[in-house]
């Protein structure tokens, strides 16, 4: 049916990588190639090619602006032309899927991750930096969070209950110290993020290796004692009083912040 073909052709002009050149060369043929009957394509106005290009620009600029807004430091490092190409490629290969505009940067990063990781022309820290920049919106808007506490005190043989927004992020770079222009130091980094249940602000804590190792296990659902023992085994450190005191202090701090709610 020609109306469906018109929609397909229109969408293709926005989506396909080679559409701008094809539309520019012969817009009626472009429509015909997408199944629009020649007599319908012939009725398109003279301005059709130019207007399709405007639509394409509008769609792509809106997506690009959103990504640049959520990932300002990443966008500076990519530069406008590269970000433009990335968005074009993203729309052609994957595109946003969710009806929620705010999620599109996360969708973009999921697609860009493997590409950037293997692209030697980009700074090695770029993907970590981008993921760190996005985590603020990701945690800030997470539908989870603010859950009622179980009311049970922590117990060694029980897993723990975190607020639903708690995330542990590990990076090979100290991305939280990157500035607009300065590269982050190459330094293994573990950050704990959560959304404050009262003021809804995203809070970031820099964790020591042992706090990170314990947190990873607790988030995976291990009982507290197993998490402590396994973390020490992993790091090759003794499970001594000093370690236990440090972890007790850490967990008490998380509880005070409302990020740790008690035993699960």
């Amino acid at each position: 049916m020609s109306e469906e073909a018109l929609i397909r052709a229109f969408a293709a002009s926005v989506i396909e990588l080679d559409a701008p050149a094809a539309v520019q060369a012969d817009v009626r043929q472009f429509f015909a190639r997408h199944g629009v009957p020649p007599e319908v394509a012939a009725r398109l106005p003279e301005t059709a090619a130019e207007r399709l290009a405007i639509y394409r620009t509008m769609v792509h600029s809106r997506l690009r602006a959103a990504v640049a807004e959520f990932l300002p430091k990443t966008a500076i490092r990519l530069g406008r032309p590269r970000l433009r190409r990335e968005i074009e490629q993203f729309v052609a290969e994957a595109a946003p899927k969710a009806p929620y505009f705010w999620r599109l940067t996360g969708e973009f990063l999921e697609w860009a991750g493997p590409r950037w990781a293997s692209d030697a022309t980009l700074p090695g820290y770029l993907l970590d930096l981008a993921r760190h920049e996005w985590s603020d919106a990701e945690v800030g808007n997470d539908p989870a969070g603010g859950e009622a506490a179980s009311g049970k005190p922590l117990a060694l043989d029980q897993p723990v209950q975190f607020d639903g927004t708690v995330r542990l992020r590990r990076y090979a770079w100290a991305v939280h110290r990157a500035t607009e222009t300065e590269a982050p130091p190459a330094e293994a980094t573990a950050l704990l993020l959560y959304r404050d249940r009262n003021d809804h602000q995203v809070k970031t804590l820099e964790l020591t290796p042992r706090a990170a190792a314990v947190t990873a296990r607790l988030l995976a659902g291990e009982p507290l004692q197993a998490a402590l023992t396994d973390a020490c085994a992993e790091l090759g450190t003794p499970l001594d009083d000093e370690f236990l005191a440090a972890m007790a202090g850490y967990l008490a701090d998380l509880a005070e912040r409302g990020a740790l709610l008690g035993a699960a």
Binding site: I7, R8, A11, V14, I15, Y55, M58, V59, R62, L63, V91, A95, P96, K97, A98, P99, F101, L104
Partner: peptide
């Protein structure tokens, strides 16, 4: 949206 791609326009 078209073909599972949300174009946000």
């Amino acid at each position: 949206a078209h073909d599972g791609k949300m174009l946000h326009d």
